[in-house]
Amino acid sequence: MSRPLQRRRGGRDGGVTFEEFVAASGSRLLRLAYVLTSGDAGRAEDLVQTALLDMYRHWRRVAAADSPEAYARRVLVNAFISAGRRRSSSERPFEATPDGLGAPDPAEGVAARAEVRALLESLAPRARAVLVLRYYADLDDAAISAEMGIAASTVRATASRALATLRAAQPAGGRADG
């Protein structure tokens, strides 16, 4: 049997071991990474492993922190943003056309949601991370600021710009039929 990781980390003195943390939080971290990467399971797993490796190497300090899971989120999100910069990307921020999405049709709601999904995928990594932390992880702007290492004003400005881009692409309300 291979040597358990927790023998040198955390121990059984009342602190959480690394393995216990992974068992408790691994699924949540993977779901977060999956949402960040727009459903790319391979990249999501890679991000989670990157975060966990960092935590393992600093486990004594991490385990003593108020929220090891917040630490993991921070490493994961920053790794996502850094990797997003390095990837050769053909993505460009969506630019809304003046006339919106075209003529209304019976499936307008479905089409609009699909458009929002595509727009979310096209956001720059940091903008996407801010929206995911706010609307999926339900963090407030102060917590997002702390976890991303950016000013709260930057969080608000980034979210505001991203939402404005999404709003501009939605069909206008009250459009006439036919």
């Binding site: 779901r31 393992y56 929002v116």
Partner: peptide, 30 residues
């Protein structure tokens, strides 16, 4: 738009796979 974003991200999260042996993967990376 905020409601739509929240809904879309929740739908995506619901399709996420379960993690495999994360501890083992960390050990191999180390």
């Amino acid at each position: 738009v905020e409601r739509t974003v929240r809904d879309e991200l929740a739908v995506l999260a619901a399709t996420a796979p379960e993690p495999g042996d994360l501890v083992g993967a960390v050990r191999r990376r180390l």
